[in-house]
Amino acid sequence: MGLESALGEGFITTRVDDLVGWARANSTWPMPMGLACCAIEMMAFAGPRYDASRFGSEVMRFSPRQSDLLIVAGWCSYKMSHAVRRIWDQMPDPKWCIAMGACASTGGMHRCYGVVQGIDNFLPVDAYISGCPPRPDALLNALMTIQEKVKTEHSVLLDA
């Protein structure tokens, strides 16, 4: 407070971590890994009614190099898992991951030979969403959880 009064009007003081966290949290560009049914709800999440741009996430980037948040929507088969992992590896740090729906989280109803029983077998997941498929509201909720997580991270100090 003291510093602000010394600097005069037009300045605020904050910690760099908070500023970076705030900026990152409100511009998480998703990489939509739309595999199955959940992808349709993910489209609805970006569509007119649910409007993900309120959270700064309307820019769906299909290029992993430009995105921060991997949304794995749908069951992930063993054959696909290699491609998903490769895309995750291609994303630049810092990055986060949402397992959308029961199939991506645990294999869900697809308890059979073709499906990986939960993408956390080969990916670090930050937020899980239940539901088959979850409503777009639930995806928004997961996005907000990720935003909370991003805001409270100590990114700059640890990076230095």
Partner: peptide
Amino acid sequence: LGYLHRGVEKI
């Protein structure tokens, strides 16, 4: 094909 194959016929 087969990147979404889970075997529903087996299920």
